[in-house]
Design a protein around this nucleic acid. Structure first.
Lengths: 144, 144
DNA sequence: CCTTGATCCTGGAGCGGCTCCAGGATCTAC
DNA sequence: GTAGATCCTGGAGCCGCTCCAGGATCAAGG
């Protein structure tokens, strides 16, 4: 009788649909809600979460920030700045700080790659049974 | 009376000394022993661990491998190959495989840096109160 | 209408690689 | 003898998810 009769499909996306749209695992959605990155969400009368476009936008924001390497804490900061209508400059500062960290990590990783590449290249003759590489591989700044 | 009288200092390094020589945290030594990367080590009669040069060499090997980004599992493999006198070629294969992974990660991280750098560079004017960056920052391959 | 299989719910555990803690025992230097 | 550093043990905490058990609900096919 009522317009929302028993066999009417509930509106909004289910958790899995939202996750698919954001390109993440359904469990991740629940996890983000648990730690407060996503707000508590309306439920059907049977307790199932239903999402709308606003939730999707927020989740996508979080996922995109994560893909850029921001930590969950940093994502929280970004969301906070956005939430209180902070300035562009604030956001830029956060991003610039993170960029520095990324560049640092990048330098480290480049050094690791160069060292590894040299080690691999330096051991072409394969049949040597007592592998000097194993000892030499990690010859480093040891004090003896 | 006996040569090893009560006030003779026990020989060998204590855990903290070993860790210092290897450039790691004392707790890390205990952790590695727990997971079997370092063998159980002789103890004094009061239960304190005492280490010798062989332990130091092994710990340094593990730490060096870790610094090169090998996982603990990979370190285990390297140690196993070394332990049974495997060939250079085996070691080279492990290192080459890891090198590939490092290069992959390096490419990812480079992409992240480029994207971040572009975002930061694209928002020089700081006073804009409604930060388009926050929305644009993470404009990505969204399907709408 | 009924079944089947997908999805949802909850709280909690597990992953890697450490690091730290509590609560006590022991060692070393003064 | 005493203070302070270091050691011992088992277990918890960190990050960022991901998976699990055990049950309820939902959507689609027959």
């Amino acid at each position: 009788m009522s317009p929302s009769s028993s066999r009417t499909r509930e509106p909004g996306w289910r958790r899995g649909e939202l996750a698919a749209r954001a390109g993440c695992h359904p469990e991740t959605v629940r996890f983000y809600e648990r730690i407060g990155l996503l707000p508590p969400v309306p439920r059907t009368d049977r307790g199932h979460r239903r999402y709308g476009p606003a939730h999707l936008a927020r989740l996508r924001f979080v996922r995109a920030a994560r893909r850029l390497g921001f930590s969950l804490e940093e994502v929280r900061e970004l969301l906070a700045v956005g939430g209180r209508g902070g300035t562009c400059e604030e956001v830029r500062a956060l991003a610039a700080r993170h960029l520095l960290a990324v560049e640092h990590r990048l330098a480290e990783l480049t050094a690791v790659r160069d060292r590894l590449a040299a080690l691999v290249a330096g051991c072409r003759r394969g049949e040597d049974p007592d592998c000097a590489l194993l000892e030499r591989l990690f010859a480093g700044p040891w004090d003896g």
